[in-house]
Simulated scan of single mutants.
Amino acid sequence: MDAAGELQDVAAGLSGLSFGSGLTGEEEKLRPLRARAAGLTFCGLAHALYLCKLAHSLRYLALGASSIGPAQPGGDALCVGILGLGRTGKQLLLSLLDMTAIKASHIKVSTRRPQNAVEFLQNRVECFFDNGRLAAWADLLFLCCLPSHLPKVCADLHSRLSKHCLVYSFISAVPVARLTKLLRHDFIIKPQYDIVGGATADVWLSCTDLSMALREPLLIEASCPLTMSGGITLNLNWVCTVLYSLLNICTSASLPSSEALSLMNSLFMGKRTHTVQLNAQSFISSFHASSLGGDEPFPWISLTDAQSKETPLLRFLSSNKSMQQRISEAYKSLLETPVSSDSYTLL
């Protein structure tokens, strides 16, 4: 047993050594704030990992099925860029290395202080300070910088971003519409978390060690996007946007719509062919779906619109509890699945 484990055993049953034992009445009122702050950090990382695992698997499958083949320098591997190596960027990088099958050689970081990232060089993660270079290379780019740095960062990025690079923003207080204008790019996901007043947040108090917390089924359950608990919610638009981003990955690989739908259903349905399936009308209007041939790719979907407007997918998921349940099951299964470097199937 390590030192931390020994300390936990020694402290077991001793209430005077537990968190909150020395808090005053006024300080005790801040306990839910501490818990929710930990919960927001956990959920942000868990949802980013979920997207990475989905995109990594689907891109491999989509490009393997495409007759045209990949145009990106990483071949069929997902290239993940992290812009900023502060607290959020570092936690995300550690989680990607520890909990996904994405190789370190397919992760790069741009940071103003690359000399402080020596610990990651041993894992073959390349660290430098060139935001434009990172944007030109990445298939999936995480923005982990401060809001005050955003104008300079966007100026570095907007002329270097490929249309097919998915940008995921951790930057608080900057809505997706603003990011779209600054980056001149519409393939962006910006999760919008809300706090539910009066709901208990104590479930998040155990998130002191994120590497351990991200393996805890109870916390994975609490962070499930469609059934979140612990005083934090994430609207259904985020789930729709993730699905639309996967559809765009298929489109960028020139995958026919029939094959794209088959892959999407395999991700969330597994072999349950008797259940409700995603079809063209799930994603686009009936008018456009009727004119879409099975050998044609889906049209490119603006994720900015997907996060701000009522979409066919939002209407479909809102009225289909069975599909919501399958997506929730896939989320929990995917996060709890042990890492396998040669595994690309999800269920």
Results as ranks from 00 to 15, higher is better:
Lys29His: 08
Ala138Asn: 03
His47Cys: 12
Thr24Gln: 04
Ala199Met: 10
Leu166Ile: 13
Phe170His: 08
Asp9Gln: 13
Glu26Gly: 10
Val125Thr: 06
Leu92Lys: 03
Asp305Phe: 08
Ser105His: 06
Gly230Phe: 00
Gln8Lys: 13
Cys165Gly: 10
Ala46Cys: 08
Gly20Gln: 08
Pro114Asn: 09
Trp238Tyr: 15
Phe170Gln: 02
Asp2Cys: 13
Gly230Lys: 06
Leu94Phe: 06
Ile301Met: 08
Glu336Asp: 11
Trp204Cys: 11
Ala4Asp: 09
Val203Ala: 06
Leu226Val: 05
Ser308His: 06
Thr273Ser: 14
Leu63Lys: 04
Gln307Pro: 01
Lys332Trp: 01
Phe268Thr: 08
His274Gly: 04
Gln281Lys: 12
Phe187His: 13
Leu58Asp: 01
Ser290Val: 01
His158Ser: 13
Leu58His: 06
Pro70Asn: 06
Ser162Pro: 07
Lys53Asp: 02
Ala35His: 14
Asn265Gln: 05
Val10Pro: 00
Asn116Tyr: 05
Lys90Gly: 09
Met269Gln: 09
Ala38Thr: 11
Ser319Met: 05
Tyr331Trp: 08
Leu219Asp: 02
Gln281Met: 10
Leu314Met: 11
Ser229Ala: 14
Leu140Val: 06
Pro114Ser: 10
Leu92Pro: 05
Leu346Val: 15
Asn116Glu: 14
Ser18Asp: 11
Arg124Met: 12
Ile188Leu: 11
Arg315Lys: 14
Leu303Ser: 03
Val242Trp: 00
His149Ser: 15
Glu28Phe: 11
Cys224Lys: 02
Met323Trp: 00
Gln8Ala: 13
Arg31Gln: 14
Ile188Glu: 04
Thr275Lys: 13
Gln115Pro: 00
Gly294Lys: 01
Ile107Met: 10
Ser252Ile: 01
Ala177Cys: 11
Lys163Ala: 15
Leu97Trp: 02
Ser262Ile: 05
Gly89Val: 09
Pro175Val: 09
Ser319Arg: 02
Ala260Thr: 15
Leu335Asn: 05
Arg160Pro: 00
Leu40Ile: 15
Thr337Asp: 08
Lys108Leu: 11
Leu218Ala: 15
Ser229Ile: 10
His158Leu: 05
Gln281Asn: 12
Arg87Leu: 13
Leu234Ser: 10
Asp295Tyr: 14
Gly198Asn: 06
Arg112Met: 09
Gln307Phe: 07
Leu247Tyr: 07
Ser343Gly: 06
Ser21Glu: 08
Ile189Tyr: 01
Ser328Trp: 05
Pro312Ser: 11
Leu14Lys: 12
Thr88Lys: 00
Gln122Gly: 06
Leu121Met: 08
Leu30Asp: 07
Asp342Gln: 11
Ala222Leu: 10
Ala222Gln: 07
Gly25His: 08
Trp137Ser: 04
Ala201Val: 07
Thr100Leu: 02
Pro297Ser: 13
Leu236Lys: 05
Leu150Asp: 02
Lys309Asn: 12
Val153Thr: 13
His106Thr: 09
Thr311Asn: 01
Pro32Arg: 07
Leu292Asp: 04
Tyr331Arg: 03
Val174Gly: 00
